[in-house]
Design a protein around this nucleic acid. Structure first.
Length: 491
RNA sequence: GGCGGCGUAGCCAAGCGGUCCAAGGCGACGGUUUGCAAAACCGUUAUUCGUGGGUUCGAAUCCCACCGCCGCCUCCA
């Protein structure tokens, strides 16, 4: 069975077949950069990172585009309200583009920490104003859009497919009480392609309709088609953007190009914190930087970035995930266990005897790999895939401390690297066991102390022996007495 | 009001018609090991899948009703 992926457009899990054999064009809605990335961003971009990694693992040549929204995203999706970047710029007394730059760097810093692979192309909305104007003009020319008083709106009544992604009817939405009344629009569901700028609006550009700035939905259509073509394989985003954002993207793109915009729509679910939606007003809004190093009132400690990744992968991307201190703590422990097993294998590798691999272990590894792939093929069941990693951890745990053939250890290490590393991004290529360049020196120094403690233990001077162990523990160094001797690690 | 989802052990979570007296992780408990620990290993920890009906030879998995929770359509990914 090949790779199967749930398609929101058809509401079914489908066999994945790219438009062009061997090649995948994938676009994911990127962040609006007016604040530090939070748990929601982590869930989103880790989820799509695993999709990307698995496609590459399967041998596809993937081109991955993820935009950076630095203009046009308003505080109110009904085309009212302020531009999010401009509002933040006022708060911080900086230029909107400085805000965009600062938070873009912050975003990538956090994503790097989460081991999220960088997209191939990260286009900025503000860098694609001419293209957005062009698309707007095309839509006017084709009768899908109309200009009113310097703003341009998409006329949803002209596009028959409007609502096919979200399952909404235009009539239903009118019945809803939440539609803002905008007298410029012919239909309340119409959405802005181009907005007229007031003189005090900082980010504004010349256009055929006067000074203005682009509507939020436009950028994704424009950049997707510019870098990936008029029809792409995968478009990803959060479930909350199904409507109106993605619905509007489809309308604009298909109206302009007369061809399907996206083959597979992939949406991940949302994040809650302590059982409630995460919101600034609820006091449970947690940024990644707070988790990693600053701390947060809801958390008892800080957690390593991979622990967050681990927690995300323990549930399905289409399920909501509840972040809590307990859940994070459990994920951290699980992650540490995997890491310890990988390090054990790599250390053993150095002095392993050069013999043929254990056929039985190779067989087990192969069975695990098949289980892993079956799980990932089934719409990215990362929870089961992760459980396979734990099966490998268990296998490592049962291996004798010495005498395992080098080829066996290599096979295990390789599988950790491909499945745990390449695909899940949980296993690292290198672990700094004692902090970089001081490694050898530290090893020698601690070795001396271990020797002293051994002497004390031989002499049954356990008080002295325990004192050495306790002292080292204060620096986070844990001693472990094993049959072959005492080893140390950073706790 | 419209649309969607969820309820599985102390906690997180997979499973979505038979191979489930239900994977995996965390935690807890007992054991092996240890001078004591730590780590590791072995074992125990859901006769049951929110409740009540129904369909079926067979249901955690399908249908109906009810209860509870959550999300989107506002801030927010």
């Amino acid at each position: 069975m090949g790779f199967r992926l749930y398609n929101t457009l058809t509401r079914k899990t489908e066999d994945f077949k790219p438009l062009e054999p061997g090649r995948v064009r994938m676009y994911v809605c990127g962040p609006t950069v007016y604040g530090h990335a939070h748990l929601g961003h982590a869930k989103s971009y880790v989820s799509f990172d695993v999709l990307l990694r698995y496609l590459r693992y399967l041998g596809y040549a993937v081109t991955y585009v993820q935009n950076i929204t630095d203009v046009g995203h308003l505080t109110d999706d009904a085309d009212e309200g302020e531009d999010k970047l401009e509002r933040q710029a006022q708060k911080e007394h900086r230029h909107p583009m400085a805000i965009a730059e600062y938070y873009t760097r912050s975003y990538f810093e956090d994503m790097d920490a989460l081991n999220v692979q960088r997209p191939d192309i990260c286009p900025r909305a503000a860098g694609h104003i001419p293209e957005q104007i062009e698309l707007t003009q095309t839509l006017i020319d084709k009768g899908y859009a109309y200009e009113v008083n310097g703003s341009v709106y998409f006329d949803v009544s002209q596009f028959a497919g409007y609502g096919k992604l979200s399952g909404r009817q235009i009539e239903d939405m009118q019945a809803g009480a939440r539609i803002e009344v905008n007298s410029e629009k012919r239909n309340p569901a119409d959405f802005a392609l181009w907005k007229k700028a007031e003189p005090n609006h900082i980010m504004q550009w010349n256009s055929p309709w006067g000074r203005g700035y682009p509507g939020w939905h436009l950028e994704c259509s424009v950049m997707s088609m510019k870098y990936l073509g008029t029809t792409i394989d995968i478009h990803g985003g959060g479930i909350e953007n199904q409507f109106p954002h993605h619905e509007c993207e489809i309308a604009q793109s298909e109206a302009a190009n007369d061809c399907p915009f996206v083959k597979y729509w992939v949406h991940h679910n949302m994040v809650t914190v302590d059982g409630q939606k995460m919101g600034k007003s609820l006091g449970n809004f947690i940024t990644l930087k707070q988790i990693f190093k600053e701390g947060h009132p809801r958390l008892s400690r800080t957690y390593d970035p991979p622990a967050v990744r681990q927690l995300i992968l323990q549930s399905h991307y289409r399920s909501p995930i509840d972040f809590s201190d307990a859940a994070l703590s459990a994920a951290q422990s699980g992650y540490d266990k995997i890491t310890a097993a990988v390090i054990k294998v790599r250390k053993a590798l150095a002095l392993a005897p050069d013999r043929a691999a254990d056929a039985n272990i190779l067989m087990q590894l192969n069975a695990m790999k098949e289980k892993f792939e079956a799980a990932m093929n089934d719409d990215l069941n990362t929870a089961v895939a992760l459980s396979v990693l734990f099966e490998m951890v268990k296998l490592v745990g049962t291996l004798p401390v010495e005498g395992v053939a080098k080829a066996t250890l290599e096979a295990i290490d390789n599988q950790f690297r491909t499945l745990g590393g390449d695909v899940l991004g949980i296993v690292k290529d290198e672990y700094a066991t004692a902090g970089g360049s001081d490694d050898a020196l530290l090893d020698h120094l601690i070795g001396l102390l271990i020797e002293q403690r051994q002497t004390a233990r031989k002499n049954k001077d356990f008080a002295a022996a325990d004192a050495i162990r306790d002292q080292l523990a204060k620096f986070g160094i844990v001693l472990e007495d094993k049959p072959g001797g005492t080893t140390w690690r950073l706790g």
